[in-house]
Design a binder for these strands. Structure first.
Lengths: 136, 136
DNA sequence: TTCTTGACTTAGACTCCGTCCATCGTAGGA
DNA sequence: TCCTACGATGGACGGAGTCTAAGTCAAGAA
């Protein structure tokens, strides 16, 4: 994750303790935290950090393409740091748990030009839904 | 849409003017209204209708499988009455417009058992994103 | 090293979307 | 026609996220 900190510094980010802590919290595999969970974990290391800062930092990381926002349902968005390896998501309909998955095939290729209605289509997100082992 | 009203009556729905109006508002192709838009349109015909009733009725239609809930982004959910023809959605990243699309291929078949992690996977939603002709 | 400045952070008010609840109204069967 | 359980109402409530005004501080300049 120091890679990430380096990349951010290279993009002109002012490196503050808050940003460092948020980036560190997101470090790790297959972690899909909500903004509030990120805030709670960040606050363990930096008790004064505010919710607004966490939201700001997450938003910046998303717009830089370093983190992916996953809208699970009506619930809170989750943040996925695994942004540099293309993948899709498997969501538990009951508890909201998210896993990264790697389907075969390319969904973008499955959308014929006639079905694009003049849109400049740039992305296809696949969300698989079902019950996780604990909820089934 | 009188089909829909018939089906609902057949399922034991008490037919009230509010439910009738909500069902009628959702009538039509390729309409993807938010709950507030449904409420606004319903209120043109039935000014006293309450937001709670619109939410209740939409929720019932969704759980009966007559309408699909589309979570486009962080914004309000949209309601898609085209529930009896399998399809996916194409969303404009700028203005949020939604279109129904019909890709080839079956995304569920693209998820190998080894990538299901013990989930009982029942559904695959594909959301294509890009810019619509007006926003491009 | 100190100064300077504008980018960053903070707390809390606010908005938006949706749900809940107590009460009232009414569809439809007897 | 009457009854009653199902449905509607509207206002309070809650969670998630945004905004704002004021204070703070990282990092370049001198």
């Amino acid at each position: 994750m120091s890679d990430l900190l380096e990349r951010l510094r290279g993009r002109g980010w002012r490196m503050t303790s808050q940003r460092r802590v948020v980036a560190e919290v997101l470090d790790g595999d297959h972690v899909h935290l909500t903004a509030d969970e990120v805030h709670a974990r960040a606050a363990q290391r930096l008790p004064e950090i505010s919710r607004a800062t966490v939201y700001n930092t997450l938003g910046e990381l998303v717009s830089l393409g370093e983190v992916i926002e996953v809208a699970t349902d009506g619930r809170a968005k989750r943040y996925d740091p695994n942004a540099h390896h293309p993948h899709q998501h498997l969501v538990c309909s009951r508890c909201g748990t998210v896993r990264d998955v790697h389907p075969t095939g390319d969904p973008l290729a499955d959308l014929p030009t006639a079905e694009r209605f003049g849109f400049m289509v740039s992305q296809a997100e696949v969300t698989y839904r079902g019950l996780c082992p604990s909820c089934a």
